[in-house]
Design a protein around this nucleic acid. Structure first.
Lengths: 116, 116
DNA sequence: TTGTATGTCTTGTATTGCAAGGTATACAAG
DNA sequence: CTTGTATACCTTGCAATACAAGACATACAA
């Protein structure tokens, strides 16, 4: 039982949201996601995603020294990245609304009467 | 801008939820999902999913005559399918909780203090 | 040089939504 | 019987993406 498939198309939005809050580096993002309640995420998941987002100009990166290890690559959001985050939030709300409607067997035309 | 990726691992749960409510046939499921607010879903999405779920013994099917066309294949949930639906709901709540925490920048240890 | 912890990146695989196209039934019109 | 339309189901091939496994690099201690 895993949520692997469910993370598709959602993880990138989560990364954008975390990066928007403050500059973070890749290794740290995996830890952050755990703080938010997710199971540990592989670096093989995080890094390709960050590179893809950088290629799409959603984020920029700057290398900074670490106290204990190689240089860290800190990411921050571009204007385009902030826009994409807004789009993601819209898609996420759309998904949440519709899935919850299905689970409650309330069609869209039932609106929010919630009296079952 | 589409929610294609976000549907992965979620659509099957939605189908289980709809089928649990009442017997439905594949062609109808696409229409049902629209009633719940989703954009139109391709039959190339629905049918392979139903076949997969039947192979996994989550659903069973019976053919019944249609008033206007070939026989319909009506699906209903097995006990295993009901269990899987419960598991799905659990995963969905886990996902909802954690993504919403990320979007609000509330870590799991912040619990539900919501005073930001 | 060896070992440990910290950090980043690459390769290959599995899953799954979807477009495109094929097959089959019912019915009406000719 | 053929043609056209609506209904209904299925298959093939593609694209996107989370992930395991492993490679590579830096800092520091023994």
């Amino acid at each position: 039982m895993s949520t692997t498939q469910m993370m598709k198309g959602i993880l990138d939005g989560c990364l954008l949201a975390i990066i928007k809050d403050r500059e973070v580096y890749g290794y740290e993002l995996a830890e952050q996601l755990e703080l938010y309640g997710f199971d540990a995420l592989s670096e093989g998941t995080i890094y390709p995603l960050l590179l893809r987002m950088q290629k799409e100009e959603l984020v920029t990166s700057t290398r900074k020294k670490s106290t204990a290890g190689p240089k860290r690559k800190y990411y921050s959001l571009t204007a385009k990245g902030e826009q994409e985050l807004e789009h993601f939030i819209g898609r996420w709300e759309y998904l949440q609304t519709n899935v919850n409607r299905v689970l409650k067997h309330e069609t869209a035309s039932d609106e929010s009467q919630g009296r079952g």
